[in-house]
Design a protein around this nucleic acid. Sequence first.
DNA 1: GCGCGCCACTTTTTT
DNA 2: AGTGGCGCGC
Length: 826
Amino acid sequence: MRQPRSYNGGMLPHDLFSGAPAPFGTGNGAGATGVSSQAVQPLLQNLNPEQLAAVTLPAGHALILAGAGSGKTRVLTTRIAWLLQNGLATPGGILAVTFTNKAAKEMLTRLSAMLPINVRGMWIGTFHGLCNRLLRAHHKLAGLPQAFQILDTQDQLSAIKRLCKQFNVDEERFPPKQLAYFIAGCKEEGMRPRDVPAHDADTRKKVELYQLYEEQCQREGVVDFGELMLRSFELLRDNDPVRAHYQRRFAHILVDEFQDTNKLQYAWLKQMAGDVVDGCLHTQGSVLAVGDDDQSIYAFRGARVGNMQDFVREFDVQHQIKLEQNYRSYSNILDSANALISHNSRRLGKNLRTTQGPGEPVRIYEANSDLAEAQWMVDEIKQLVRDGEMPRKEIAVLYRSNAQSRVIESALFNASVPYRVYGGLRFFERAEIKHALAYLRLLENPHDDTSFLRVVNFPPRGIGARTLEVLQDAARSSGCSLHDAVSAVPGKAGTNLGAFVALVQVLREQTQGQNLRGIIGQVLESSGLLEHYRHEKEGADRLENLDELINAAESFVTQEGFGRDAVALPLDEHGNALTQSPASQGLDPDAPMLNAPGNVDADTGETLSPLAAFLTHAALEAGDNQAQAGQDAVQLMTVHASKGLEFDCVFIGGMEEGLFPHENSMSDRDGLEEERRLMYVAITRARKRLYLSHSQTRMLHGQTRYNVKSRFFDELPEEALKWITPRQAGFGSFAPDSGAARAYQSGARGQFGFKTEVFASPPVPPVKAAPGHGLRVGLAVFHTKFGEGKVLAIEGADADARAQVHFPRHGTKWLALSVAKLTIVE
DNA sequence: GCGCGCCACTTTTTT
DNA sequence: AGTGGCGCGC
């Protein structure tokens, strides 16, 4: 049954929540007349009208278009708190989904700060975390062992490689990476092998491998990330009582970062929300989706912004609220963001505004080289810190691709400026940690062949590829796991393989009854891992990490409580867990599945071992990348990684055609628009000060490249900018107000967006004058290696001069004229 | 079975 | 440039 919906400016349509008690007295004060809610509702203090409207929306589906820095997380958490506080929802009736563990934790932390409730038992988590919870609770229906393990991307790839070897797949024609991508893509689309349209031989082969991969995973009792989603979607879809139960239970579904959902996640949400009857969606609860189409930067991994439009249509969304008031940045920064993003088509339409003044202009710097760019950043950062403008941790350097961080890192390092790099390998992804986890997984599940192969010969114990090949053949022909294949073949007892299996067996027995810390300590020692790294010369870090693994396990046990869900438990001021009686959680004692927290079988109440729970935690939460948190350090990260963060001061480096926008995404309009959204995200990270920089030359893949400044500069409002590049001799840089700068900025662009025919004569005669090269655009030239070609463009001057030349046989290349041997063809 | 050296690769990333 | 994977030689 659908509730009637109305919208009266967001002002408390209490009649829609029939008979719900309002413990904090919402019912007696605030009304449609807009009575100040501050006095009545401390929760709602300092919310602007749009935020207030969103927080207090009546039942029914809603889409909140929340611009960057508009208080999105605040609205989400306050909404939940408001629902609970007014008795419009019970903790058990709320489902809140995010994409990252960080966002989920943030929500839980804020929520427990607002309300004195136990957030355990609330379904707040990542898509994958909640799917895990569902599958553990209903593992029999889902066809999985309760202690199924989760493959991360690395594990998945090695599982696929193993499969390819086994079935003699030509890895040239079907690269395992691509297969992994294909399989993940299929799952994101909700397709099992039989659902994939295969019109050509290649696709048929891939589908066949997909099928084999599925069988392998099933046999080994492991699931990949995509499988978590797909399997739980199917669980809901195919089991009416289960689906009905959750639909009845979750009166309020809230989705964060909705623009990042893929097709499957949206379908999953629909299953949770209601059933489609006669092509029409019938829902019981309310779905509140919060998102920003302008911040959709994950199309490359299956995110579908179109889900926002589909949601409005299919859920017949009645309430759409735009949060456009920005509390983060000064208007020069905001105007820049707005101007840039206005160049995108097909937007839902949204313009950020602020009551803050213009603030400082956006500073733009042109460097001669990536090295100089990095050095300039460091100088600027040092000055900011020296002047006491802001602490280092409030300064972020953002870049488009990870490769760019190296130069900046070394510049910071040489200047002894503390910095922290985000990204790269995370804790649970480090090799030594994965090795340790593989041993632990074998204790839980000896049939996990991926883990078996990972450590069967690590540390080296004389088991080579040949031996394993034979073993794998034996396992395949008898359809069993590698572990069982060892035991099945008689006469293996005395071999290295037999010894390995025995080792795992002994470990399993030895660790019986031990606590998690003891188990891991024992495994690290008896496996020989510690011994191995003690002898390795670079092993000290690894030993430290392994030690850290024990600590992580320790804090997992004390913080999370084993056998429970991997959701942070709120503690009172004495460090005790806050608890709440089942009755007040609104759980129906007659329905067993209601009471199932994470990692517990909904029917039997059976729960995972502490070890298995920890392994799940390790897979779902890869951990932080860097240990030295909390230090006052400059923050380095990709633009993608910066989403959701904010800093007083932001540097965006490498603003060059081919880098940002990245050349691989410039072929189609969608790609370019995503790059623009990425830039939009980057700009809106800054609160007070924003620097953009580009460099004329850059080392990339060991080669010097000549780059033109990014087209995105042309899409920023001139009046908000300040070009701060100093006048320099001999490098074709310009003072901001020179005529040359104008010409430079508005130079005609050729078919690749490179500027052509813009000839920069240096403001000051060069000290070391290189001989004039005499080249002109359009001239035919001869190169000793590439043969005859045609000059397309010329840039720089003197020693720094270079030309873009098209060679019929070798394509288009940029050549440094001081190096390349070019002769003009008469 | 192990280790060295060569070759190919290189957008963004969470779970 | 730097890394990871693979193949060859010991």
